[in-house]
Design a protein around this nucleic acid. Structure first.
Length: 960
DNA sequence: ATGCGTACGTA
DNA sequence: CGTACGTACGCATG
């Protein structure tokens, strides 16, 4: 321990004591880490435990304390509650999911050999105060790890508080100087300041309108709280008034926030050793919590004193690597950074291939012997947005030899050809993070990437479909638990200034190559991450039986999507402009009328201002509230108000105009977004289809979203007329599945009546209504048909009878009756939906027909709202997911059929159950047949898959 | 500038 | 008080 060198005290420093506020740390961890990403299959939340372990390890590693103790609050009140009944009232409402983790944290501490201390009747803070005092007397420097600012009063030359900043991971060393800098008062004065300001987190009111600033000003003016009280009359203004009105509360606060520093804890500081963990117990606990080996090793490494748990033996040394001996470079997160060379020409690529990859057998199957472990990583970086692609650099990595080859952007055609050849020869061992993105990046140089053996982005999605890995680094931290600093090394933080690189602008003129070296370093690091992810996710994917889905569906569909994004959809610019002007004129007109009626120029796009006009100025009776408590002004509510206030000219005039404005302004906005998205180079919109976003397996479309172009009413539908065939094409074809989700429900449930309804080929909803109401088909009224239709569709969403009644504007009783009749007719559908949920509760996940999984830890939540929501999602997931699988298969088949028939017609859009195909001259008939067959034949169910198709000069007219 | 809430478009 | 998405705006934060 180096600390004693600094000591100028007469007493020798014995070392460092670390005292941890257990509750505060658990609390911080719980709210900093998303519980969705940290829970076991059985639904136990583990985010606080993981965060606690992670943070504690980090602090021990950086501070290297000699003694350690963790203080916890004890259930039940403390002396503070008798003083101030509402004290920490908000904290008792700590979420169940956090409370269940506290015992686990204590069990972990016990296994790690760490002392934790609770003192009935007192808080963890008092224990901490006492320990800090004890540490001081025993000659230790004390570090207090706490997110509770009450601890600041303990700070002095020998006590430092480590306070989590905004990021939970970065800790501020709160020294006396730091406190003064931040609050303008000394640590000893801090409780006075806190008493004045109050503490929302602890449910302690301060002086209204007084924050840190005024509190500090007064303290410095009058020295202390007592001084302030004496001079309270001299303080003018509203704040002075507020102070006088609340002075009793403040004095009480001050009593409550003083920490006790002389408890009898029954231990001495010298007893608080650590570093002798019970590995078996820790193993058992981490297994139960489903923490990976990396987490365990990282924690153990820190807690096992003296011994290093590093070299997990059995690491194979590379076989005679050509000229690359020496220690492997490891970066701070433990990744091994590959040795790299730059390729200057095609020969370098060939040479690297010979030296680093297994010899490809001549002819067909390349590295088939290489026991199928993906070992060749290709990793390209650049802008991969379709329509504006630019490649920066690409690296090849032979993972087992840790050797990389970097190709800088702007390589020539000979290198492109060499690269393509290499990829093709070794495609069976090729892995990539984001096949679709790589197709875009490399296509810019004329390089086609063959279907790789593995894709870490898609694999991560299949393993955890509801985890949103935004980038490679996030995927890495999720699956590898390497903890990496955020994506870019953005401007060095103030704290690190002292080790910033010297400025090299003046000397050497080497700035550019230095820059390039840095770029290389990130590129190589990213390639190394992909390699690590490949090793980690391959077996995981296998373990949850998703491998087939990757190779047979996701990877091939990536290729189809690449084509769709690359081609884009042609827009008729003049039509768009006309539409925008038309909608804009209508919106403006409606706005004028609304303003006339309102008597003021309210912003019609501000729900807040609207609520004021409607419910205050006009005095209308509100309908429903939003979830945050304000009165809703959504279309439903406006409609209700409109009907209800038909006799009020001003109100109904305003509401009518507002409703028109809402609709037409929305359309104007949509058109404007489309205009903005048209690529001027080709007059087409190149959306991006996200393949790893929707938890059910669906695609989504962004930048812009082309899956929500209006279709439900005539005015909106006009926008579709701006989607037209491009040059060299003659028409658009739209093909969609009719009632896929219902058909899937019929198939999966095996309900004979529902299956027969589909096989009969009759008007489905009318047929179903006739069964439900036990009437002949031709006696079904329009109302009956629409009610049954809503019921049918609602089923797959877990629609409640309340929701059904609301939607159909019938009484809950009638809705209940309809539901009962429906289930009496289709009993197996009911059983099937229930079994979806119960099976998911048991196994922890749902499965589509093709084995795609989605996990539902919340099914066992004690929170009813969360649990109910999970149940609805769990009943929907197999249905929506199967439909998504079927469409993906159809897309792969349709694309393949069009290509192998040599047609130029191509799929350009997918809207969940619809494909839009751009038809080349003379290909209409053949393309229709091929796409229809692909869609109808994607899978064989107990009911037919019905596809309807239409062709026209634009998307609107292609409807059928 | 960034994040949240509200609203609304699609299947 | 129906599933799955993406986007735009206002407004309150920094």
């Amino acid at each position: 321990m180096m600390a004693d060198i600094e000591s100028t005290e007469t007493t020798e420093t014995r070392g460092t004591l670390l005292v941890v506020d257990g509750h505060s740390l658990a609390f911080r961890a719980f709210f900093a880490l998303p519980v969705e990403n940290f829970s076991t299959a059985s639904g136990q939340a583990t985010n606080a435990v993981w965060g606690f372990a992670s943070m504690l390890s980090q602090v021990i590693e950086s501070e290297k304390p000699d003694r350690l103790a963790v203080a916890f609050d004890v259930k039940g009140g403390t002396f503070r509650n008798t003083l101030l009944p509402q004290y920490k009232g908000t904290r008792d409402a700590a979420p169940e999911e956090l409370l269940t983790q506290l015992p686990l944290i204590q069990r972990m501490l016990a296994a790690l050999g760490v002392t934790y201390i609770e003192k009935p009747g007192y808080e963890g803070d008092d224990v901490i105060g006492t320990l800090a005092t004890m540490g001081d007397h025993a000659g230790y420097h004390t570090l207090v790890l706490s997110g509770d600012r009450d601890a600041f009063q303990l700070i002095d030359d020998r006590v430092t508080v480590l306070y989590p900043g905004h990021h939970f991971k970065d800790l501020k060393h709160m020294t006396p100087q730091a406190v003064v800098a931040k609050y303008k008062v000394t640590p000893a004065q801090y409780p006075d300041l806190a008493a004045l300001r109050g503490e929302t987190a602890d449910n302690i009111p301060g002086v209204p309108g007084v924050g840190d600033g005024f509190a500090a000003k007064w303290i410095n003016l009058y020295g202390s709280l007592d001084g302030i009280r004496e001079h309270a009359d001299e303080i003018g203004g509203k704040k002075g008034e507020a102070l006088r009105a609340n002075i009793d509360q403040v004095m009480l606060n001050r009593k409550v926030n003083a920490l006790v520093r002389d408890l009898d804890l029954g231990v001495t500081v010298d007893d608080l050793t650590f570093g002798d963990p019970d590995v078996d117990e820790l193993d058992a606990l981490f297994k139960q919590l489903e923490f990976g080996p990396r987490t365990k090793n990282r924690v153990l490494k820190v807690f096992v004193s003296g011994r290093s748990v590093h070299g997990t033996d059995g690491k194979r040394t590379g076989t005679g690597a050509a000229g690359s001996a020496g220690a492997k470079a490891e970066d701070e997160s433990g990744l091994t950074i590959p040795e790299a060379t730059h390729a200057a020409g095609a020969e370098d690529i060939a040479l690297w291939e010979r030296e680093n990859l297994p010899a490809a057998e001549d002819g067909a199957n390349d590295d088939a012997d290489a026991n199928n472990v993906p070992n060749l990583i290709i990793h390209a970086e650049g802008d991969d947005r379709p329509g504006r692609v630019s490649l920066e650099a690409v690296t090849l990595l032979a993972a087992d030899r840790n050797t990389a080859l970097v190709l800088d952007a702007l390589f020539g055609t000979d290198m492109a050809a060499a690269l393509e050849g290499l990829l093709d020869r070794h495609r069976s061992i090729l892995a990539v993070h984001g096949y679709k993105e790589h197709l875009h990046l490399l296509a810019a140089y004329g390089v086609d990437v063959p279907q790789p053996a593995f894709d870490t982005k898609l694999a991560g999605y299949l393993i955890r479909p509801d985890f949103h890995a935004d980038g490679l680094e996030q995927a890495a931290s999720q699956f590898l638990d390497l903890h990496l600093d955020e994506e870019q090394p953005k401007a060095t933080q103030g704290l690190l200034d002292f080790d910033a690189e010297p400025d090299d602008s003046a000397d050497s003129g080497d700035g550019e190559s230095d820059e390039r070296r840095k770029q290389d370093a990130t590129l190589l690091r990213h390639a190394a991450i992909v390699a690590a992810l490949t090793r980690e996710l391959g077996p995981k994917l296998e373990a949850c039986e998703q491998t087939k889905l990757l190779s047979a569906i996701e990877l091939p569909v990536s290729r189809v999507l690449f084509g769709m994004e690359n081609e884009g959809a042609k827009l008729d610019m003049r039509r768009l402009d006309d539409l925008r002007d038309m909608f804009a004129a209508e919106a403006n007109q409606a706005q004028e009328i609304a303003w006339d009626n309102a008597g003021s120029r309210v912003n019609l796009q501000s729900p807040k201002q609207l609520a004021k006009v409607l419910f205050e100025d006009m005095g209308l009776k509100p309908t429903k509230r939003t979830k945050s408590g304000s009165y809703t002004t959504n279309a439903d509510a406006l409609q209700t108000l409109y009907v209800r206030n038909a006799d009020n000219d001003r109100a109904s005039g305003f509401l009518g105009a507002l409703l028109r404005h809402r609709e037409t302004n929305k359309l104007r906005q949509i058109v404007a977004t489309l205009i903005d998205a048209v690529n001027p180079a080709d007059g087409r919109i190149h959306t991006t289809f996200e393949q790893t976003v929707a938890a059910t397996g669906r695609l989504s479309s962004v930048d812009p979203n082309l899956q929500n172009i209006p279709n439900r009413n005539a005015a909106g539908r006009e926008i579709r007329s701006a989607f037209v065939p491009g040059e060299g094409y003659e028409s658009l074809m739209s093909c969609d599945y009719s009632q896929v989700e219902l058909r899937i429900m019929a198939h999966l449930s095996g309900d004979e009546a529902l299956i027969e309804a589909f096989r009969s080929g009759a008007d489905f909803h009318r047929y179903v209504a006739s069964l439900v109401y036990q009437l002949p088909v031709d006696e079904i009224s329009a109302d009956q048909r629409s009610h049954v239709k809503a019921m049918s569709y609602g089923l797959a969403y877990g629609l409640s009878t309340y929701g059904l009644s609301q939607q159909l504007k019938i009484s809950p009783g009638e809705a209940e009756g309809l539901k009962a009749k429906y289930f009496a007719t289709f009993g197996k559908v009911h059983d099937f939906l229930e079994s979806c949920v119960s099976e998911a509760r048991e196994r922890g996940y749902t499965e589509t027909m093709f084995g795609r999984r989605r996990y539902f830890p919340a099914l066992n939540s004690v929170n009813r709202v969360a649990r109910d929501a999970a149940e609805r999602a769990a009943l929907n997931a197999p249905i929506q997911g199967t439909a998504a699988d079927i469409m993906k298969i159809a897309m792969i088949h349709a694309d393949e059929a069009l290509r192998s028939a040599g047609l130029n017609s191509r799929i350009i859009l997918q809207i969940h159950d619809e494909l839009v195909v751009e038809i080349a001259p003379g290909e209409a008939e053949q393309a229709t047949r091929l796409v229809r067959e692909a869609m109808e034949g994607a899978v064989s169910l107990d009911v037919p898959l019905d596809v309807s198709t239409g062709i026209g000069p634009d998307w609107q007219l292609a409807a059928h």
